[in-house]
Design a protein around this nucleic acid. Structure first.
Lengths: 243, 243
DNA sequence: CGTTTAATTGAAAGCAGTCAAACTATGTGG
DNA sequence: CCACATAGTTTGACTGCTTTCAATTAAACG
């Protein structure tokens, strides 16, 4: 039973961190037909303005949501770690309002849109879990509005680093002393509403102050408390203790 | 049957713009117990970190969601017009992650949290409508991240003005040539991630360029197309034609 | 190794913030 | 109806965070 596991196990585990699921509900989820897809970095899972036909769950690797402005700038609006459903946001909408891309090489499990939707609508326990998940994602979007709107560069970057740490931890993916952040400084800039140049300066400022340690893209946190303070970071918006 | 109408009629009307509701579902919604509450400007409907017990629907007046940072700055993360449910965001969460306040004098219909939640979970048609609404709100949050993260002051303000116009229109509240924007420049700043001083300069810049006309807080749009262009405004994210 | 991509650094420019003051609108009490 | 108080808007001068532009250094890749 160890290997290979049904990729939908990951989704079950994720949903169960937020809401109770009976064995019957779990079985119903695991019974969904699903196909695996391998993704190169930057591969699109969803394109704005297109209709949706599948519901992807991130199995390995990282992904992000993104929107482009008319003058060609990009804003990353969320990051995703393995186990997270990527398409709940579009499950009940006709047309995609943003893009979803792989950040690294990644694997996604694809479930037919319609089947996922029907399962949610027919099973109130799963419906509840889906709504909790949708609500938490919305909460994270709100926090990002605050982050980009009201924190200066250093706090903004620190906040993203803190959030990513906790998100990884929630999925049981946290290393003992930090993590590999799979983003270029340009991508960080797009997530923070900053230019890559200023991201660079801000990272080194955090490093100089001893708030983070770096080796390539590996980040460690010698003084988490101080970093969280600079970030004005409070986990409440992640609703971790929901269930 | 004209007056007074059940305040929940407003909610029904709102949900029906996004998803179909049978007469049975409508009746179930209208049968919910609800009490009216009058709100002064700035009155809190929800406070961060508190548990939720009621689900409010905005009947008249305006409201907004807001978060405070540790250094006392405020970020408004969304605006709400009459007819919109204010607490779907917290319906499936234990503890509030943000504050909700009245922007003007307002009236809200309060439905017990539990009853609203149960109705949604027991009626898949209503569940669907709620999920569509949640999804659209999430989409708006994403667009706000883009707005604050990637547009400069003029476009940012223009975008807010455009969104508000369409939101009012969706609720059938649009005047023939503009609307009364019930916000101080300080509140606008909090919604845009700008200082009130810069909001002032930006408003007058838009006015000087003939993109808006002003009389007190009444705003008119002599050249909507040009304004929408400056705002990089596209209605897709509002998912208006959903149903 | 050479090539490409990403990270780093410096100097200059610009958008937005800060501070402070004046002005306008609105409302209240005498 | 006017004096005064309050809240909100407007303006100016100055500062500063972030961007822009350009160039250099370092890392990743075949």
């Amino acid at each position: 039973m160890e290997h290979p596991i049904n990729p939908l196990e990951l989704l079950v585990r994720r949903l169960r961190t937020h809401a109770p699921l009976s064995q019957a509900s779990v079985d119903a989820i695991l019974a969904l037909p699903c196909t695996m897809r391998n993704l190169e970095p930057e591969a699109y899972l969803v394109r704005e303005a297109e209709k949706i036909s599948v519901c992807a769950i991130l199995v390995s690797g990282y992904a992000y949501r993104q929107k482009l402005t008319s003058d060609g700038t990009r804003q990353i609006v969320s990051l995703h770690v393995p186990g997270e459903p990527l398409d709940f946001q579009h499950l009940f909408l006709e047309v995609a309002d943003h893009n979803v891309q792989a950040l690294t090489t990644a694997q996604a499990a694809h479930v037919p849109h319609e089947m996922m939707r029907n399962l949610i609508l027919c099973n109130s326990e799963i419906a509840r879990a889906a709504m909790v998940y949708l609500s938490i994602e919305a909460s994270i979007f709100r926090e990002w509005v605050v982050n980009v709107g009201r924190r200066e560069a250093k706090g903004r970057l620190a906040h993203l680093l803190c959030e990513f740490a906790i998100r990884l931890d929630t999925q049981g993916l946290s290393g003992s002393d930090g993590y590999y952040l799979p983003m270029t400084q340009e991508q960080l800039g797009d997530a923070l509403g900053l230019t890559p140049v200023h991201v660079n300066r801000t990272i080194r400022a955090l490093e100089l102050e001893g708030l983070i340690k770096r080796d390539r893209r590996n980040i460690a946190f010698p003084d988490w408390k101080a970093l969280a303070h600079v970030a004005d970071f409070n986990t409440r918006y992640l609703h971790i203790e929901q269930h």
